[in-house]
């Protein structure tokens, strides 16, 4: 999988980010703006929308790898092209200032700047998001949650914001709020298998904290169904199978409650045979992914090393139990 500056993967691994940021001199050498005076420059400039996506991604990669000087140059170009007042450029400049800030005091100053910008123009979504991200990285999650709930109230179709809110809630151990936010994400992107699996994970966690009893059994069953949906949408999704295996093992170890304490509104609990079959399916599929993914077979790349190790560890634990 080759990462380009035009379309980098959402999660850059450190070596890829370094490789991308090393392309900075190349991009900076070719100027998109023409040096000719105005009417002629319109005809000779070679800029396309892609030019600026490349610049933006380059800026992010440079900030990440600590190449602040190239970042500054890229940023200056964007400011020269789009002006100071463009929301997106403002957010990128904010990111740059956050990156070069020496201590907490400097970050607080950036935060103040964000707040004045938001007061001047409350519709500036990129800056609002930077504001929330900075609040979070300053270790003030409650403030971040407050700002973010205000954001999703005024812009409830923003899947990114809802997902961030879910993450913040989950970090504060407010699991039901986190699940609610993730459901909002699903309403916007109904086929996002990772969100289905994430809801499954949160349901699983909240079922664990519920302790023993019929309620937690129901929680595990719902988590299992979420994982099922996620691997139904993507049959190579390691996290989905991992969760499916965990949830089904939990269910098999628990005593199924009697039928009558399940409310009629929700789905009936799945029969034990189905759970066993699902457990087997998840085990075999995980084993296949681990085997082929570690061998780096063609078409099986792209699994993260850490996830593969965790999956192997889960399988080994399971195998050890059987031997014993």
């Amino acid at each position: 999988m080759s990462a380009t500056l035009l379309d980098p993967p959402p999660h850059l691994s450190p070596p890829t980010a370094l490789r991308l940021s090393q392309q900075a001199p190349l991009v900076l050498a070719s100027s998109p703006a023409s040096s000719l005076p105005w009417p002629i420059s319109l005809l000779t400039s070679s800029e396309t929308p892609e030019t600026w996506s490349v610049h933006e991604n380059l800026l992010l990669a440079c900030l990440r790898t600590g190449d602040d000087r190239s970042a500054r140059q890229v940023l200056d170009r964007m400011v020269a092209r789009f002006g100071d007042e463009n929301g997106r450029v403002m957010a990128l400049r904010g990111m740059y200032e956050e990156a070069v800030a020496k201590d907490k005091g400097a970050l607080e100053k950036v935060l103040k700047e964000y707040e004045t910008t938001i007061q001047a123009d409350p519709t500036n979504m990129p800056i609002r998001k930077r504001h929330i991200a900075l609040l979070r990285s300053l270790g003030r999650p409650t403030d971040a949650i407050a700002a973010l709930t205000y954001l999703v109230d005024s812009s409830p179709t923003d899947a990114e914001a809802w997902a961030e809110l879910a993450d913040l809630y989950a970090s504060q151990n407010l699991l039901s709020q986190a699940i609610y936010s993730l459901e909002e994400v699903l309403l916007i992107t109904p086929n996002a298998w990772n969100i289905h699996a994430r809801i499954g994970e949160l349901l699983y966690l909240s079922a664990i904290s519920n302790g023993e009893g019929g309620g937690s059994y129901k929680g595990f069953a719902e988590a299992m169904r979420r994982f099922c949906r996620s691997v139904e949408l993507n049959d190579g999704y390691l996290r989905g199978f991992y969760g499916l295996k965990l949830a089904t093992s939990r269910l098999l170890s628990l005593q199924a409650p009697k039928r009558n304490d399940v409310s009629a509104e929700d789905l009936p609990l799945p029969p034990v045979t189905t759970i066993e079959k699902l457990n087997e399916l998840a085990t075999s599929k995980l084993a296949e992914i681990v085997r082929r993914g570690s061998a780096k077979e063609a078409g099986w790349g792209g699994y993260e090393e850490a996830e593969l190790i965790a999956a192997r560890e889960l399988l080994d634990r399971d195998g050890a139990k059987v031997v014993r």
Binding site: D153, S154, S155, P156, T157, D158, E183, P190, E265, D266
Partner: peptide, 23 residues
């Protein structure tokens, strides 16, 4: 913006309701 997107949210809820549990 809030007015417009809230309406879209309702439409999203209507079209993608099947991802939610009944309750």
């Amino acid at each position: 913006i809030r007015q417009q997107r809230s309406l879209v949210r309702g439409i999203n809820l209507r079209t993608n309701a099947n991802v939610l549990s009944p309750s």
